[in-house]
């Protein structure tokens, strides 16, 4: 029997309540049931007035955000609070990891990367083919597990007048099969793309590593800093320090000139707050045109050559 509430599992990193938790709470509000937040101890930055109930687990964040441990935590919560109608996670590295493992354990339905909800049909929108189309999913049993796309629902959060009840879930034993050892910071490089006012950013659509020197030339000529999307780093065309996006850097330049970047949402999340976004892409259907202020459909390398010629000639 469901107990008529939404359970939101918090994502916490180095003691901080991640901003994308607002999207899980926001979807919880749209679902129209009381929202309970599940989180570990020692977390800063939680606005408890956004919640109807707070459930605290006596564990540190490294133990809490572990899929094996999460299953034991959820078993305890379901026992003490009753079974929720929905269990929501952020669509992040650890959120998706825990949601998949828990859904497999409980044989529960799971829709990941949810970016929309249709009240009238009770269906969830999920991206396919890098946002080219969306599937509307209906869940056939309860509780339904969901992971929520960052930036999708935060405008739906509402604040209560009074502080919520806070309850303890109690102690949780660490899992033997998997243990947290330490955080590792990726080594910083010589260039800090977050400080640049003008970023020239390239994607996999430029074709090959051999094209990179010409983009470096264009960036130098225009006094822009060169950055890139994830595939360019994966292919070792440019170093990691140049990567814009969820797993790279978040940037807010005056101008973001995206060349041959199609616009996966992980990339968009890292640059959407730029003052001016200009996108150049061969594919008129590239999702990045939905987020850009200006768009050009063109053969990107050809336009690059023309730009170099014009800028250097002037």
């Amino acid at each position: 029997m469901s107990a008529g509430y939404v359970l939101v599992v918090a994502e916490v990193r180095r003691g901080l309540f991640e901003e994308r938790n607002l999207d899980t709470i926001g979807l919880g509000r749209e679902l129209g049931l009381p929202v309970s937040l599940l989180l570990p101890e020692n977390v800063n930055g939680v606005d408890e007035l956004l919640l109807d109930r707070v459930l605290k687990v006596s564990a540190d964040e490294g133990t809490f955000l572990n899929p094996l441990v999460m299953v034991s935590i959820l078993v305890k919560v379901f026992e003490s609070q009753g079974q929720p109608d929905f269990v929501l996670f952020t669509h992040s590295s650890s959120g998706a990891e825990c949601a998949a493992y828990a859904a497999g354990h409980f044989s529960a339905p799971l829709v990941t990367d949810v970016s929309g909800f249709d009240q009238s049909t009770g269906t969830f929108f999920k991206s396919y083919y890098s946002d080219k189309v969306f599937a509307q999913f209906k869940s056939t049993s309860s509780p339904t597990f969901l992971t929520v796309r960052s930036g999708s629902f935060r405008e739906n959060v509402t604040r209560n007048q009074a502080a919520p009840a806070v309850e303890s879930v109690g102690d949780i034993a660490p899992a033997e099969g998997r243990t947290f050892l330490e955080y590792v910071e990726e080594a910083g490089g010589a260039v800090d793309i977050t400080k640049a006012e003008f970023l020239l950013s390239v994607g996999r659509g430029i074709g090959s590593k051999d094209e990179i020197p010409r983009y470096e030339e264009l960036a130098r000529a225009m006094r822009a800093v060169l950055s890139c999307s994830r595939p360019v780093v994966d292919k070792l065309w440019l170093p990691k320090e140049r990567q814009v996006g969820t797993s790279g850097k978040t940037v807010k330049p005056k101008v973001y000139l995206a060349m041959a970047i199609s616009g996966a949402f992980q990339h968009i999340a890292g640059m959407k707050d730029a003052d001016c976004i200009i996108a150049i892409n061969k594919d008129p259907e590239a999702p990045i045109f939905q987020y850009a202020h200006f768009g050009i459909v063109a053969d990107v390398n050809k336009l690059r050559d023309k730009l170099i010629e014009t800028v250097k000639g002037s």
């Binding site: 044989s107 529960a108 339905p109 799971l110 829709v111 929309g116 049909t121 269906t123 929108f125 396919y128 946002d131 080219k132 189309v133 969306f134 599937a135 509307q136 999913f137 209906k138 869940s139 056939t140 049993s141 976004i277 996108a279 999702p287 045109f289 939905q290 987020y291 850009a292 202020h293 200006f294 768009g295 050009i296 459909v297 063109a298 050809k302 336009l303 023309k306």
Partner: peptide, 26 residues
């Protein structure tokens, strides 16, 4: 445990102002 009820195109945002023309103009 989940079923696709419908496929849909992404919700159209305002979108970019498109710049057209030949390579010199653009």
């Amino acid at each position: 445990l989940i079923e696709v009820t419908k496929w849909a195109y992404p919700p159209k945002k305002e979108g970019a102002a498109m710049i057209a023309g030949d390579v010199n103009e653009v």
